Amino acid sequence: MSTPAEFPVTWAPRRTRAVLLPVCVVLVVLFAVIAVALPANWQFNDRIMMVLSGVLFASVGLMLARPRVSADAEGVTVVNFVRSRRLAWAEIVGVNFRQGDPWATLDLADGTSLAAVGIQPGVGRNQAIADARALRDLVARHGG
């Protein structure tokens, strides 16, 4: 497998995003329609809460669609479900993606590891392996 030739490079579970983003829109629209269609004895506050429930469920879907790993000449940005972290190339000492792992992990110079949820078998196991190898090759080429 060859490494990406040009920066920036981004790895993300695109199929997951392609499914989740429309589902989030449908959730908000569905809950809004339900809020309008509720019987007359439901109060305005109940209708608002119904719409807000749809927004809350959609927010969770958007959070699940966030993960990605981006590399550029200066380093790597890992965006996971809630947090994102910027790493210089020298901070990454290894990339692991073992059989059965839910996503790749980065071994860091400070002895810790960081989940790279953007590289996951949800895109297809072979594609995830190729992505992890490409990132590993970039780390070997640009690391400290």
Score class of each variant (00 low, 15 high):
72 D>K: 11
27 L>P: 03
37 A>V: 04
55 V>N: 08
54 G>L: 06
134 A>Q: 07
31 F>W: 07
44 F>M: 14
111 G>P: 00
92 I>L: 04
3 T>W: 10
139 V>T: 10
54 G>C: 10
130 A>M: 04
14 R>C: 00
89 W>K: 10
122 G>Y: 10
134 A>E: 07
129 I>C: 02
29 V>S: 01
118 G>D: 04
52 L>D: 05
48 I>L: 13
70 S>K: 15
112 T>F: 02
11 W>V: 03
142 H>V: 03
93 V>E: 12
102 P>D: 04
35 A>H: 05
140 A>Q: 14
41 N>S: 14
92 I>R: 05
140 A>K: 13
54 G>Q: 00
28 V>D: 00
134 A>L: 01
128 A>W: 05
4 P>L: 11
12 A>F: 06
71 A>R: 03
24 C>T: 09
9 V>E: 05
85 R>N: 06
15 R>L: 12
100 G>Y: 09
101 D>C: 03
99 Q>V: 15
9 V>C: 02
32 A>V: 03
114 L>W: 02
27 L>R: 04
82 V>W: 14
44 F>S: 08
97 F>A: 11
82 V>A: 12
4 P>G: 14
43 Q>F: 11
138 L>F: 11
109 A>D: 14
59 S>R: 05
109 A>N: 04
139 V>S: 09
140 A>W: 06
93 V>M: 01
29 V>M: 08
96 N>E: 15
124 G>L: 03
137 D>H: 08
68 R>P: 00
116 A>C: 05
110 D>H: 07
111 G>N: 05
83 R>Y: 13
21 L>R: 14
91 E>S: 09
120 Q>I: 01
126 N>R: 15
76 V>Q: 02
32 A>G: 15
20 L>T: 04
101 D>K: 09
71 A>E: 00
40 A>V: 09
140 A>H: 13
94 G>C: 09
68 R>I: 01
97 F>V: 07
133 R>S: 09
3 T>K: 11
90 A>S: 13
107 D>V: 06
12 A>I: 08
68 R>F: 12
23 V>P: 01
138 L>D: 09
50 M>P: 02
85 R>K: 13
40 A>F: 06
58 A>Q: 02
108 L>T: 03
28 V>H: 02
38 L>I: 06
105 T>C: 09
122 G>N: 10
40 A>I: 04
68 R>A: 09
50 M>I: 08
62 L>D: 01
37 A>L: 14
33 V>C: 10
52 L>P: 05
58 A>L: 12
102 P>V: 13
132 A>L: 01
64 L>C: 11
51 V>M: 05
119 I>W: 04
78 V>F: 09
94 G>P: 07
19 V>W: 15
96 N>P: 00
83 R>S: 14
38 L>S: 02
79 V>L: 07
31 F>M: 12
78 V>G: 01
50 M>Y: 00
123 V>I: 12
92 I>F: 05
66 R>Q: 03
71 A>Q: 00
33 V>Q: 10
68 R>H: 12
52 L>I: 06
120 Q>C: 12
87 L>W: 04
